[in-house]
């Protein structure tokens, strides 16, 4: 599953985690993640019943994308820091 999707993008794969963060696709996903976080904050501030029901659905996207972002950042740090 995951391997087959990646095969499509094989020719345009970034070389390193740093390049992945700097690439157009990576940038769009990070922008999407930031937008979701902003929406979440607005919903929390709005404090309405409807907003509270939407929060868990927004979290569905934020959690995996945030985990992915953290992994990319960890890869980037390993790339630039002299830690082995």
């Amino acid at each position: 599953m995951t391997g087959t999707v990646t095969r499509v993008a094989l020719d345009s794969l970034p070389g390193t985690p740093g390049q992945a963060l700097a690439s157009g696709a990576g940038g769009i996903v990070v922008a999407f993640l930031l937008a979701l976080i902003a929406v979440r904050l607005l919903l929390v501030v709005a404090d309405t019943e409807r907003g509270r029901s939407i929060l868990p659905v927004v979290d569905l996207a934020i959690a995996p994308l945030l985990a992915a972002f953290v992994m990319l950042m960890a890869g980037r740090l390993a790339e630039i820091l002299p830690i082995g």
């Binding site: 599953m1 995951t2 999707v5 990646t6 499509v8 993008a9 794969l13 970034p14 070389g15 390193t16 985690p17 390049q19 992945a20 696709a25 990576g26 996903v29 995996p64 994308l65 992915a68 992994m71 990319l72 890869g75 790339e79």
Partner: peptide
């Protein structure tokens, strides 16, 4: 995730 995460290295 499949499109963005993999890198050549």
């Amino acid at each position: 995730l499949s499109l963005v995460l993999p890198t050549r290295v």
